[in-house]
Amino acid sequence: MNALHTTIRHSAVFDHPEMGTHEDIVFVQDHTTGLKAIIAVHDTTLGPALGGCRVWPYDKPADALTDALRLSKGMTYKNALAGLDLGGGKAVIIADPRKDKTSAMMESFGRHVERLSGTYITAEDVGVSPDDMEAVARQTAHVRGTQATGLGDPSPYTALGVFEGIKASARHVFGSDDLTNKTVSVQGLGHVGYDVARHLHHAGAKLIVSDIHAPAVAAAVEAFNATATDPLAAHAAEADIFVPCALGAGLNARTIPEIKSRIVAGAANNQLETTADGEALKERGILYAPDYAINAGGVISIALATPGCGDNVVRHKTIDIGKTLTRIFERAEKDGKTPEQLADQIAEERLAEARIA
């Protein structure tokens, strides 16, 4: 038995705290290309499970499993809240995207997606480029975010939705969505984070930027007249708004007491390490924009786009993310709930209605 299978077996998959009601967990590998991946299908009540593929050098396979389980559940809620007839799934590939990832590896991943016969539909995520998705598409039709399936790279729509969500958050907290001279700390400058920073710069915000990839920081500092900081300290920056666009679980018992911003609104998935962390933000008077509500622009683009179409429908629905968040903030305040509790409630209500129908 290889190391991947041994480690996962010992992690007791069915007893995993994030297992919940997941329908399928698939472990795949290809010795020829070095592919080691986990595909998690959380719920297909509303339709096939749509969710991106993430490439990341996890320290151990058990960490990759936890990420796949949490992210796939988040996709179920994201798609439900966005009003899409799609379930939730996610794939993670254990590899360094800058050193290990190859077209052959991504094609191999595509072949494994094809074996699931449409139960899972993949797309771009952290560590994956539009070219990678084109490689996947050479082996399966169950892929979105390619030129053949519509609008191509979904990250600009994710960034647009996050920007609209930041404006809605500012309107709720500050009484105006004018970001002129607001100081914003953007943590993570990948495809989405960099584009969010661009939107904020054009809106007149003062930017503090950070990323583990130094060239991305240098580019943002030059392009947006930004100030650089250590990504491990980005949450604690002297800023009005904190925008986490890196990996998840960054909002936790250690970081939350250090946050100086009045708003946390970013693109990262699964930002709360535990459910108690949402309550901790609320107790500190910090408004949290639920991650799967604010970052839904990408999945909207790949769900609604069709080959050869314009992007007007996608852009309008993505811009409506701001309106969705406003409703969540107002209802949560009225009901005495945290925003993520209210967002979960709305998503669960839609799933319950679909199961009855």
Rank of each mutant, 00 (worst) to 15 (best):
S117T: 05
D131N: 09
G152H: 02
A104S: 11
R171D: 12
V192Y: 11
E114A: 15
A159F: 10
R138Q: 11
A135C: 13
G204D: 11
A197P: 11
G89Y: 05
A168W: 10
T122S: 14
T158I: 05
G89W: 06
G150S: 09
F109Y: 15
P154K: 06
F174G: 05
T119W: 07
V162L: 05
S155N: 13
D132S: 11
Y157K: 08
D125P: 00
D125A: 05
L160W: 13
A170G: 04
K206N: 12
K167F: 01
G165C: 05
E107Y: 00
A104E: 13
G89V: 14
G188H: 11
G145S: 08
V143E: 09
S129T: 14
M106W: 02
D195Y: 00
T149R: 09
R98M: 10
R115G: 12
A203Y: 01
K182G: 05
D178F: 04
H201W: 04
A141N: 08
S169I: 00
K206A: 06
Q139I: 08
S129M: 07
I166C: 07
L160N: 07
A168N: 09
G193M: 05
S176I: 15
V173A: 11
M133S: 10
G165F: 09
A168I: 05
R171E: 13
G161D: 03
A148V: 15
D153T: 10
K99F: 00
F163R: 03
K99C: 05
H172L: 00
T146K: 06
I166D: 06
M133F: 12
M105H: 04
A197I: 14
H191S: 15
H172E: 14
H191R: 15
H201K: 03
E134P: 09
V143M: 12
V92C: 04
A168Q: 08
S185L: 10
R138A: 15
R171H: 09
A205I: 05
D131V: 07
L160D: 11
H112V: 00
K99V: 14
Q147S: 10
R138I: 01
G165S: 04
Q139Y: 08
P154G: 10
G161M: 03
E107G: 13
R138Y: 01
S155F: 01
